[in-house]
Computed example of a mutant assay.
Amino acid sequence: MLVDDHKTMLWGLEKLIEGAGAEMQLVGTAHNNDTALQQAALLKPDVIVLDLDLEGRSSIEILPQLLAAGGARVIILSGNRDQGLLTQAVRLGARGVVGKEAPAEVVLNGIRSVHRGEMCLDPSLTSALLGQLSAPAKADPEAARIATLTPKERKIVAVVVEGNGAPNKELASKLFIAEPTLRNNLTTIYQKLGVANRLELYVYATRHGMTNVTA
């Protein structure tokens, strides 16, 4: 699946995939974060070629969900050379990074490598990326807030993110608790994390990697 908000770039990538013959099949395209999530959940592609900047929004915020949607592997194809952003993408699970200016065969080889489960980093970025990845991660200033959550509350947060807008009744059923209990727990979580509602909780949790459902 191809995700890019530039129609010309998307058209070129489509032709590139078609040119690879029977080896690759294009199952769908998307042009922003919302359609990318919808298409990934619907189509369950093996590989997602993802641009980092989609209609003025960073696709970093949806990367964990894209990876969880159907087991897809993600390769970043971007004109953005921000080392911090690219490193963050790799930390969040992207299997490859290739610059948009790379030759066609480099892009295709990157897709092949990622499909095989290998890492594929643009040679010009490798040293910088590996240097940053091996460096100690900076402490998350929100770590103290997050640490106040109980294991049960962390699980609720993860289920809210996984539910992606599902009604409270459905979330409560997944958690095997009553709906009023869920509402009470959410109120406590909002207070601890300094958010106002489920939408803000969703954004906060995604930004800080609170997406793993634990017992």
Rank of each mutant, 00 (worst) to 15 (best):
19 G>W: 15
105 E>S: 14
209 G>N: 13
1 M>G: 15
191 Q>C: 00
113 S>N: 05
159 V>S: 00
154 R>F: 09
189 I>P: 01
122 D>A: 12
19 G>N: 15
90 V>F: 05
136 P>L: 03
149 L>E: 10
36 A>L: 10
47 V>F: 09
124 S>F: 09
79 G>E: 04
87 T>I: 05
156 I>T: 13
104 A>T: 10
28 G>E: 07
15 K>T: 14
61 E>Q: 13
40 A>P: 00
3 V>I: 10
169 K>F: 03
89 A>T: 15
201 L>Q: 01
208 H>T: 02
188 T>F: 05
115 H>I: 02
145 R>T: 15
23 E>R: 14
57 R>C: 10
12 G>Y: 06
106 V>N: 00
188 T>R: 14
55 E>N: 06
198 R>C: 03
112 R>T: 05
201 L>Y: 09
42 L>V: 14
77 L>R: 13
159 V>L: 03
93 G>N: 11
114 V>A: 04
125 L>N: 04
203 V>S: 13
193 L>E: 14
109 N>P: 01
122 D>W: 07
174 K>F: 01
92 L>K: 04
214 T>A: 13
19 G>D: 09
165 G>L: 14
52 L>Y: 02
175 L>M: 12
7 K>A: 13
187 T>A: 14
54 L>N: 12
11 W>M: 08
54 L>K: 03
119 M>P: 01
112 R>I: 07
155 K>V: 04
135 A>Y: 11
178 A>H: 01
151 P>I: 09
49 V>L: 06
50 L>S: 05
139 A>F: 04
103 P>H: 06
102 A>P: 06
131 G>N: 05
135 A>G: 08
109 N>V: 00
52 L>K: 08
147 A>L: 05
93 G>Q: 10
61 E>A: 13
215 A>I: 02
28 G>H: 15
16 L>F: 06
103 P>R: 02
154 R>H: 15
116 R>C: 10
198 R>D: 12
125 L>T: 04
132 Q>S: 11
164 N>S: 09
14 E>A: 07
137 A>E: 09
112 R>V: 04
137 A>C: 08
117 G>D: 08
7 K>I: 07
160 V>D: 08
175 L>W: 11
206 T>S: 08
26 L>A: 05
149 L>A: 02
30 A>V: 13
57 R>N: 08
134 S>P: 03
25 Q>P: 00
24 M>H: 11
168 N>L: 11
206 T>V: 05
147 A>M: 04
134 S>R: 10
38 Q>F: 09
194 G>V: 11
176 F>A: 13
39 Q>E: 12
86 L>M: 08
5 D>Y: 00
98 V>K: 01
164 N>H: 05
104 A>N: 10
43 L>I: 11
137 A>Q: 15
59 S>D: 11
164 N>I: 06
14 E>G: 04
90 V>K: 10
132 Q>W: 07
91 R>T: 14
30 A>C: 03
90 V>I: 14
71 G>Y: 08
1 M>H: 11
30 A>Q: 08
46 D>V: 03
166 A>M: 11
175 L>K: 15
183 R>K: 10
185 N>K: 08
190 Y>F: 11
158 A>R: 07
15 K>G: 02
79 G>W: 07
59 S>K: 02
62 I>P: 03
77 L>M: 09
194 G>N: 09
17 I>K: 00
192 K>E: 12
157 V>E: 07
213 V>M: 06
141 P>F: 06
106 V>L: 03
40 A>F: 14
134 S>T: 08
185 N>C: 02
